[in-house]
């Protein structure tokens, strides 16, 4: 009898929670399974819960056509607001066009949409990716100022070929190091944000360039982990510097141990929270900035307690 009563109570509570929900939000996440996606989606859920919304997040599998279908199904199912995390810039115009045609409030999250439709997005919550690159560039110059080396040679591991994130970060780095003595030794090496691929690339680069490398730079924490393992196994740890972008736990650990010179912030928790907060304002008919930037900047060992880690 007790069990039946408890079950009924739980059911009533669930129904009540549904009845008092402010509305239903639907999010299609192109990078649902990416390491960065998990904390971002957790923050989206947490903020939606706090603000009294029901939320459903689905995996867009980096497929714009699939995301379009998901949004169509969500609209048919009566969702009140939408969050769009695009996979790549080029495929965004058709989705943006559809989302605007629904008349529902929506925000674009994380990946910047194509230039041709930027103005049509009600609100975009994303990092200034070029600025993240610039910060990496500034850290590179700073590292060489603080650590005297005969040469200023970098081994540079990038994310995914053609992704806006990768392209913009490289653009930012190149802007800053242009005209300096810093040399990127290798041609583009893409590890697809995969630690094991980054490890293989790092091993190859160490085999080819060896002691010529003064500093290793990676575009995220996962790839840093791969590169770190390669440096460790080939006996190069401590003999050269490492800089990366990201707030992964391994980054924190290696910052604290002094093996990583510095990292650049891109906080998935803040980004996810801001996404829902901006959407909430749009639902309520309030004014929002067209582009809400996720804060960025350098993280040193002394700052680790000021940041969230995942």
């Amino acid at each position: 009898m007790k069990k039946i009563l408890s079950l009924t109570l739980v059911l009533l509570l669930v129904l009540a929670a549904g009845a008092f929900a402010e509305g239903k939000i639907f999010m299609s996440s192109a990078y649902y399974t990416a390491p960065y996606g998990s904390p971002l989606q957790a923050a989206v859920k947490e903020t939606a819960d706090k603000l009294g919304y029901e939320i459903q997040i689905v995996d867009g599998e980096e497929n714009a056509d699939k995301q379009l279908s998901q949004f169509k199904a969500a609209v048919a199912d009566g969702f009140d607001a939408l969050i769009y995390w695009p996979g790549d810039q080029a495929s965004t115009p058709q989705v943006v066009e559809y989302l605007n045609s629904t008349g529902l409030p929506w925000v674009a999250l994380n990946t910047i949409v194509d230039d041709s439709v930027v103005d049509q997005v009600p609100c975009m919550v994303a990092s200034d990716e070029v600025e993240i690159g610039r910060w990496l560039g500034r850290l590179i110059l700073e590292y060489f100022e603080n650590n005297e080396t005969e040469t200023k040679n970098i081994a540079y591991i990038e994310g995914a070929a053609g992704s806006s994130y990768t392209t913009h970060l490289t653009q930012g780095i190149e802007e800053i190091i242009e005209g300096s003595d810093v040399v990127i030794l290798n041609d583009h090496q893409y590890a697809n944000f995969d630690p094991s691929k980054a490890m293989t690339i790092m091993e190859d680069l160490l085999t080819k360039y060896g002691k010529q490398i003064d500093l290793v730079v990676t575009q995220d924490g996962g790839m840093f982990q791969g590169a770190y393992s390669a440096l460790d196994s080939m006996g190069y740890l401590g003999k050269l510097g490492i800089i990366c972008q990201g707030q992964d736990l391994i980054v924190r650990e290696k910052l604290e141990s002094g093996e990583l010179y510095a990292s650049v912030a891109q906080d998935p928790f803040t980004e996810g929270r801001l996404g829902v907060e901006m959407l909430d304002k749009l639902i309520k008919g309030e004014e929002v900035d067209h582009w809400v930037y996720t804060p960025t900047g350098p993280i040193y060992a002394a700052d680790v307690d000021n940041y969230s880690w995942f």
Partner: peptide, 16 residues
């Protein structure tokens, strides 16, 4: 057909 739906082409498309 895919290109006509999303008006774009890219090497990683259709990997599944």
């Amino acid at each position: 057909m895919y290109a006509s739906r999303i008006m774009a082409g890219w090497a990683p498309y259709g990997s599944d």
